[in-house]
Each structure stands twice: as C-alpha cells, then as structure tokens.
C-alpha cells in the first residue's frame, strides 16, 4: 500500500511536468491546427538556459530561493522569445500553405535545435545544481520530499493561472475565438498575428517552467533529452484531447502514472515507451478526438 501511495506521489510529480509541456502542444494545435513537433526540443533548450542561468546567478551568491526564482523567470522569458522567433521565421510564412508543410517544418525545427545544441555545446550531459530544498518527511512509511511537493504545487499554480488566462481574459478569449474560426476573427479586429505569437510564447514559457522543475528532480540534461519527454507530452496532449487545455493536464497526469507504474506491472521500465504509444493508439481508435476532445463534424 505504501508503495502504491509512494508511486502515486511520484506519478503526480512526473505528471505535472508532462502536463506543463503538453499545454504547449495543445495550445498551438488549438489555434493553428499545427502539431508543433519542435516543442520537446524547446523544453530541452529551456533546461540549457536554466543550466547557464543558475550558474550565473549562483556565482553572484544570491540566496537559493532567489536563484531558483530568477532562473525560472530567465528561462521562461528567453524560451518564450525563442519560440516567438521560431514562429515568426519558420511557421508564419507557412500559415496559408498546406498543413503538412508546417508539420514537416516543425519536425525540421526540432531536429535543428537538437543538432545545433549538440554541435555548439557538445554531447556531454551536464548537471543542473539543486536549487530547491530537498528535505524528506516521513509519514508512516511514505517518504514525501519537499522537492516533490514544490514541483507539484508550482505546476498546479501555473496551470490554474493559465486556465484563468485562457478562460477569463480578453487575450484568452481571442485565442479561443481564433481556434473556433480563423477566417472570421480578424474581421472582428482581433490582431491574429500577435495572438498567435503570444500563444507560442505562453506555451513555451510554461514548458520552460516544466523544464526547470523537471531538471530539479532529474538534474542531468543533454541535447536529446527533449525527444522522449517531448513525445510523452505529445501523447499526453493527444490522449487528453489535443486542442483542449484541461485535456492536456489530464493527459499529463495519466502519462505520469503510466511511466511510474509500468515497471511494477511489466518486467522492466524499458517497456514504458511501448505502453505509452499503445495507449495512444488505443485512445485514437476508440475515441479519435481524445478523452476530453470535442467531436467535430467534417464539413464538405
């Protein structure tokens, strides 16, 4: 029982990170109908920014919490800028091209980010210094680390914040309007280009936050780390219903639990990719729009 509770907690921790990254996939898909395959690598870049930023801030002898906060902010801002740059230079020229062109471009951008990082920073993995307090609390056989709690709490706060932005603010309303009908919305005076850039920025900033939190739990980063985590977050978005923000959060937690519970059921944790992608296929066959996705009628 204690093991299951312990694993549930681990699943929540991992699921929070997947949910944060899945949000970026789902927001961009909702607004542009584009599967942004570069998102996982943007997450990787965010971790590298975190690595250099934390090093720079630590050198200034700030208190640890201040280092954490400023690293988080720096990484979120820079990653958002990078995402806006990518959107402007690679995706915007293709907005009226066949959708396949944009998807292939996204695949290309992702690989470019990976290999560019590899070529400039080298393949050697690096370790992000611990910035969050890591005290362990024992509660009847259950070990709760403060790190774990912080990751879960910060993630949930960010998700609530994002949900509020999308549901309650004018910007969020504009985003939902664009995803509802891209041709009519500009006629209503909505600055579509700015909203799309903003969507990329917000989605990537949230992924950056996910990256910093993730690298506190798993401090080793390398140029290819975004591949697996990116795919998992992508599955989370699709399983939850791509284009649906609450679906992405739900999907993130489902995938977190899948990853944590796979080794307890199957012989080895190397089966986790197999399990995750099988779940993806099963969901697509039974409910092609995902768990929370709306079924859209095909227009002729």
């Amino acid at each position: 029982m204690a093991v299951i509770l312990q694993q549930t907690l681990n699943g929540l921790q991992l699921g929070s990170v997947y949910a944060l990254i899945a949000l970026g996939y789902t927001m961009v898909y909702g607004i542009l109908r584009l599967i942004n395959f570069a998102h996982g690598d943007i997450f990787m870049i965010a971790c590298y920014i975190g690595f250099f930023a934390s090093g720079a801030f630590l050198a200034r002898h700030l208190p640890t919490w201040a280092v954490f906060a400023s690293t988080l902010l720096t990484s979120m801002v820079l990653t958002a800028l990078l995402a806006m740059l990518i959107e402007r230079s690679a995706y915007k020229p293709l907005r009226y091209a066949p959708r396949v062109s944009a998807v292939i471009t996204a695949l290309g951008v992702g690989l470019f980010l990976e290999h560019f990082t590899l070529a400039t920073l080298g393949p050697a993995p690096r370790a992000i210094p611990p910035l969050l307090p890591a005290a362990n609390y024992n509660m009847g056989g259950l070990t709760i680390s403060s790190l774990q709690l912080m990751i879960i709490v910060i993630s949930i706060i960010l998700m609530l914040l994002l949900d509020t932005v999308v549901q309650k603010t004018m910007t969020g309303m504009a985003m939902r309007a664009i995803s509802f009908d891209k041709t009519v919305v500009p006629l209503m005076g909505v600055p579509v280009d700015r909203i799309i850039s903003l969507t990329f920025a917000i989605g990537s900033a949230v992924a950056a936050a996910g990256g910093i939190l993730y690298s506190q739990a798993y401090p080793i980063i390398n140029p290819y780390m975004g591949v697996r985590i990116g795919w998992w977050a992508f599955i989370a978005a699709v399983v939850g219903g791509i284009g649906n923000i609450r679906g992405a959060m739900l999907g993130g937690y489902i995938l977190g639990f899948v990853e944590v519970f796979t080794p307890t059921i199957l012989p080895s944790s190397t089966y986790r990719d197999f399990v995750a992608f099988t779940i993806l296929l099963a969901v697509l066959i039974v409910r092609p729009t995902g768990i929370l996705g709306r079924v859209a009628a095909q227009k002729v």
């Binding site: 690679a90 293709l94 062109s101 944009a102 292939i104 471009t105 695949l107 290309g108 951008v109 470019f112």
Partner: peptide, 8 residues
C-alpha cells in the same frame, strides 16, 4: 533539418 525548413 535546416534544409528541410528552408525548403518548406
């Protein structure tokens, strides 16, 4: 990858 992006 760069070629792919420019090409697209």
């Amino acid at each position: 990858p760069l070629m792919l992006v420019v090409l697209m």
